[in-house]
Design a binder for these strands. Structure first.
Lengths: 177, 177
DNA sequence: ACCTGAACACCGTTCAAGT
DNA sequence: ACCTGAACACCGTTCAAGT
């Protein structure tokens, strides 16, 4: 993403400039700007998935709850570390173009969340409710927290910037068996 | 919002065209495009607040849980009914400009959520945890659901498009005293 | 196959000038 | 909380032409 007078721009012409090619060159690789952005978004989802898997690894033998917390923290860190990319991944600019690559990559993230919750249910740690609903709730909570924290829509909490732990705990209590 | 070749555009020039004035006229009312968008976003938050209050009215004597559900449904309906405006309200385009009117209007929405939960805690219906964290969780869940549903990031659920009730129930169970 | 420069139809923004 | 038209420096996209 590129710095503009006031804000972040993403222009094909600037991309070409940085690549040291003419402004028409990108059209040899992508049909249009939306296609380039979709590719970026798909990579974003894959990158996120990798981060979540990496966070899961040390918790391999931990409780489902510990795994859920580890994944939640990694998710929030991804959003904080890649704010422009994260916003792109959920922008209507992306989902209107409806690229298969984006749908696949985001489905994989959802599947990962479903997997953690399913194991938790099987282990008797989480309530045995339809797991897609549970996963939708967890993902929604994580996405909402990411956006609200970034947009400073939540009041600054006493300790620092940390209603997050309490927030995740709230939801997880709803999941507990 | 204005229809473009492929997607939704919002251009000052088109606004001026529709208003039947010259393309320079908007600059007599707003310093720049960001300021106009901030004003729209602030109105969006106020409109949302009104919808939530309206949904609350018939539940005046109901349980805190019934009030929370009514507000959640009204929130989701607002997002579904005003998708472009809703996206604008949470875009980084808006929160970088950091307008006081936006912060005030969005704080009012947060305060409304806090109020419902506070009463629920006082009535002994909701768990007595720090209410800001509880409110952040509920708002995050609602925002996340709105975005994920709209972007079709959640798998189509069996009954129709309805993990929502289950999802809200999940969180509310976490809130139950 | 890959790139280029010119060209077209747009933008946001500014500004001197008109009421 | 007047507006206008010309002008500037950008965009995304296309296209004939070059290697």
């Amino acid at each position: 993403m590129l710095r503009d007078g006031r804000g972040w721009q993403f222009t094909l012409r600037e991309v070409a400039r940085r690549a040291g090619v003419s402004h028409a060159a990108p059209y040899k690789h992508f049909p249009d700007k939306a296609a380039l952005l979709s590719e970026l978004a798909a990579r974003g989802y894959r990158h996120l998935q990798e981060d979540l898997i990496a966070a899961l690894a040390p918790e391999r033998r931990g409780s489902a709850r510990a795994r859920a917390i580890a994944v939640a923290k990694a998710y929030l860190d991804f959003g904080r570390g890649n704010p422009s990319l994260y916003e792109l991944m959920f922008s209507s600019e992306i989902d209107k173009s409806c690229e298969a690559s984006v749908r696949e990559a985001s489905s994989a993230v959802f599947a990962l969340i479903v997997d953690i919750l399913t194991r938790g249910q099987q282990a008797g740690e989480f309530k045995a409710v339809p797991v897609e609903g549970q996963a939708a709730a967890l993902w929604s909570l994580l996405h909402g927290l990411t956006v609200l924290e970034r947009g400073r829509r939540l009041p600054p909490s006493e300790g620092g910037l940390m209603p997050i732990d309490a927030t995740i705990a709230s939801l997880l209590q709803g999941l507990d068996a």
